[in-house]
């Protein structure tokens, strides 16, 4: 079921919290000017095949096959959610199953219930003990970190290894 849940004012910093308090107004079914503070929820009995582009936060509790593009907004796969596809979002939280790559300008969070296969490019990452993870992590290098290993090469023409295992871990699995 597709839902829109307005988040409580005090929880505006946790875009994934979709709980509503008893007595709170019913979830809205149309977009409002404050759409940025809302989550769209794809319920656990829904399956989607196709791509999604959007300008508000999205939570997948059901099954999805396809890409999600919503830079500037947050994306979550709930603990019962399953997704195969590429994700581009501001912040991403995975608690369910995902096969695919993630690109964010923010942080990726993978919780202990998650089963993730894919490659991640992000500014920050957090993976809880107990999560299954197969794939790679590439953190955005901050300018002041240019002394780190990857930046130590003085030769800008350093060749890329022939066997770059940027394995398309996800592609294989899909």
């Amino acid at each position: 079921m597709l839902k829109k849940g307005r988040k409580p004012e005090e929880d505006q910093n946790s875009p994934y919290d979709t709980t509503t308090k008893p007595g709170a107004p019913a979830p809205k079914s149309v977009a409002s000017p404050s759409a940025r503070t809302e989550n769209t929820i794809i319920g656990e009995n829904i399956s989607i095949e196709g791509h999604i582009r959007g300008n508000e936060h999205l939570v997948i509790e059901g099954a999805m096959k396809g890409n999600v593009q919503m830079e500037g907004h947050d994306f979550k796969v709930g603990s019962r959610g399953r997704i195969e596809g590429e994700i581009k979002a501001q912040n991403v939280k995975i608690s369910g199953q995902m096969i695919g790559n993630i690109t964010t300008k923010g942080k990726v969070e993978i919780t202990r219930e998650a089963d993730f296969m894919g490659d991640i490019r992000a500014k920050g990452i957090s993976i809880e003990d107990g999560a299954y993870f197969k794939g790679s992590i590439e953190l955005a290098q901050e300018p002041h970190r240019k002394t780190t290993l990857s930046a130590k090469s003085t030769n800008p023409a350093t060749p890329t290894p022939v066997n770059d295992p940027k394995t398309e871990t996800a592609k294989k699995a899909v």
């Binding site: 992590i137 780190t148 295992p165």
Partner: peptide
């Protein structure tokens, strides 16, 4: 997570 951050900040790509 600590090890992932430790390596991922120092190498080009960290595989798990």
């Amino acid at each position: 997570n600590e090890n992932i951050l430790h390596f991922a900040r120092r190498v080009k790509r960290y595989y798990v």
